[in-house]
Design a binder for these strands. Structure first.
Lengths: 219, 219
DNA sequence: TACTGATTCTAACGAACGTTCGAATCATTG
DNA sequence: CAATGATTCGAACGTTCGTTAGAATCAGTA
């Protein structure tokens, strides 16, 4: 009968004990999300039609609605999954690392590695930022705020450790700009590997934040 | 009869000698472009309908087509005007300034000042980057490339002067990221004036590029 | 085998889309 | 005033949009 894509979905989860945490439904949904991500990346959220998504994923137009109840919720699912994954990985990587500078380098590396390994998804996340309305938008915005706060915390730690006093807000937002803008220019053929780019951006940012005193050439 | 919006338009330009360089047509077109810019900024190019533009500008749907032949050309007009203005102003400001660092500071200040004074237009320029097709897209892309090359030139001058050797490409693209990302976060109420923000970003960038040697804390 | 619920499909719905046609209005000049 | 071209409009064109109803098919169980 009706589609199960509303809120919680119970019946499709077979009562397995361990070996297969993924149901058929979850796998199929993930496939659709992956294809939809590519289309949204290429044509933009508004520019991509449900018929484009149907063609790309090989499923009929109506068939898609068995997996989600609206185009907007589809975008929400993509954004939430992408964003929570990157936050989750970051937290794991920061475990056990104490040095403030190292932690910022890890932040940058994690962000860029994930960005470049999942360029389409991250472009959809960055570029289709304001399209989700009230409910959906608020939840993604909350994850974004958490991610932002983590970065602010890392930089504040560094500033405390080294006695720096520049504006955290401007510095952090500049860093996000550097990193997120990469989707507009990165070309795998011409640009170096993620580690290298992350290293260069980290150098640029950390020197910029830490280099003290006057910069202007004395005359 | 037909609309004059194709290619060159001659007849509307009255043969004035000096006092009024703007014809009625030009003024009206500029008004429409301004309103359209706001709508594109708020709803995105694909998300904004011609009826939205009609409502916002107070002109009938069909009336708009007297001034441009398609929605795509409208976006093209907005982008070309915005971008060529910023390049033009930059060139004027760089006149007579010799110091390499000063020239980069001027570049950043010019960019951010214009960005914040024309936020909607610049967001439309940054955000609706890939939507223009072949002909229209190529012309805007050419201006963008010129602008990018100017910045590369400025940074190369600085690197030559100071004997630096980091990657120009990564540095310049990082700088563009910092600056362009501002449309996602700037709030006039909470953030400082353009000069101040430009100063802080310039410090961050220039220190990052110029600070030499090792940064890592010695252990 | 027959049954049941999960999954996928064809075919359509009404609304909104970008664009165009031809008539109405306006401003200007003879 | 009449005449002419510039400007604006209402009404519609054909197409595509997101979404849905209801039937067909599939997979698994009894």
């Amino acid at each position: 009968m009706g589609s199960p894509s509303t809120a919680t979905r119970v019946s499709a989860r077979r009562h397995r004990i361990a070996p297969e945490p993924e149901t058929r439904y979850d796998r199929r949904l993930a496939e659709i999300l992956a294809h939809a991500t590519e289309v949204f990346c290429k044509k933009g959220y508004e520019g991509a039609s449900m018929r484009d998504l149907s063609r790309e994923s090989g499923m009929s137009l109506a068939g898609l609605y068995y997996y989600f109840e609206s185009k907007e919720r589809l975008l929400y699912l993509i954004q939430r999954h992408t964003f929570s994954t990157i936050v989750e990985r970051l937290k794991a990587r920061l475990q056990g690392v104490d040095d403030a500078e190292d932690r910022i380098r890890i932040f940058i590396l994690n962000h860029l590695e994930y960005f470049l390994a999942n360029q389409s998804a991250m472009k959809v996340l960055s570029h289709e930022d304001e399209v989700l309305k009230n409910g959906f938008g608020a939840e993604v915005a909350a994850i974004k705020r958490e991610y932002y706060r983590i970065c602010v915390g890392l930089l504040d730690d560094l500033k405390r450790e080294r006695g720096l006093q520049s504006s955290t807000r401007i510095a952090v937002l500049s860093l996000f700009g550097m990193m997120n803008w990469i989707y507009t220019w990165h070309k795998p053929r011409v640009d170096a590997d993620p580690e290298s780019i992350a290293g260069q951006m980290a150098d640029l940012f950390l020197r910029g934040v830490m280099a003290g005193g006057k910069i202007r050439k004395e005359r």
